[in-house]
Simulated assay, not measured.
Amino acid sequence: MAKQSTLNKSIFKFMGPKHWLSWFAMGIAYVLSFLPWSLQQVLGKYLGRTLHAIAKRRRHICDVNLKICYPEMSDTERKNLTKAHFESMGKGTIETFSSWFQSQKKFQSRITFEGQDIVDKVLAKGRGCILISGHFSSLDFCGSQMPRFIDAHPIYKLQTNPVMNWVMERQRKAIFSKTIERTNMREVLKSLKQNKAVWYAVDQDYGRKNSVFAPFYGHQCATIAHIGRIANMTNAPVVLYDYGRTKNGYLLKLTEVENYPSQDDVENATRINELMEKVIEPKKEQYYWTHRRFKTQPIHGDPSPYDK
Rank of each mutant, 00 (worst) to 15 (best):
M15P: 01
Q297D: 08
R229H: 09
F107A: 09
S177P: 13
I150G: 11
A55M: 10
S262K: 06
H19V: 00
E274C: 03
L66M: 15
E181W: 04
G244W: 10
K278L: 08
F141R: 11
Q104K: 14
Q102F: 00
Q116W: 03
T93M: 14
A152W: 09
S22C: 03
K3W: 01
V42P: 02
L189T: 05
N273A: 07
K295C: 02
R245P: 02
F107D: 14
R49I: 12
T112Y: 01
G143S: 06
E169W: 11
K173I: 11
P305S: 06
Q297P: 01
M168T: 13
L123K: 09
K83N: 06
A55W: 10
T160F: 00
A124G: 01
S304D: 10
S10V: 00
T96E: 00
E187L: 11
C142W: 04
S38P: 05
E187N: 14
W37C: 00
P298A: 06
S211D: 10
L32Y: 05
Q40M: 13
T76G: 04
L158E: 05
G134T: 09
L39V: 15
D302N: 15
V163M: 05
E72R: 13
M164N: 14
Q4I: 13
A197C: 12
F149M: 10
G126I: 12
Q159C: 01
F136C: 10
I132K: 12
H60D: 11
W100M: 02
G249N: 12
G143A: 06
C221G: 09
I299Y: 07
T82G: 01
V122P: 06
R57I: 14
L51V: 09
Y30K: 15
N8L: 11
A222Q: 10
W100F: 12
K13P: 01
A174D: 15
T234I: 02
P71A: 05
L240P: 12
F216S: 05
G44F: 04
V167Y: 02
V257T: 04
E274V: 02
N65T: 11
D302T: 04
D151P: 08
E87V: 06
Y287L: 04
P261K: 05
S191I: 01
I230D: 08
K196Y: 09
K9R: 13
K91N: 00
V238H: 10
F141H: 13
C142R: 09
L189V: 07
Q204D: 02
K9T: 13
H52R: 14
T183K: 15
G16M: 04
V31N: 04
K308R: 13
R78P: 03
R148W: 09
A84D: 13
N184V: 07
N210F: 11
S99T: 08
W20D: 05
D120E: 15
I61C: 00
G92E: 10
E77V: 00
K106R: 14
T76R: 15
T112A: 13
F176H: 11
P305C: 08
P154L: 06
N195Q: 05
S22A: 15
A231W: 07
I111W: 08
K157Y: 06
H135I: 09
M146N: 02
Q116C: 01
L81D: 03
L192V: 03
F14V: 03
R59W: 04
D75C: 04
I155F: 03
N248F: 03
K209G: 02
I118W: 01
V212G: 11
L39G: 01
P303M: 02
V238F: 07
I54T: 15
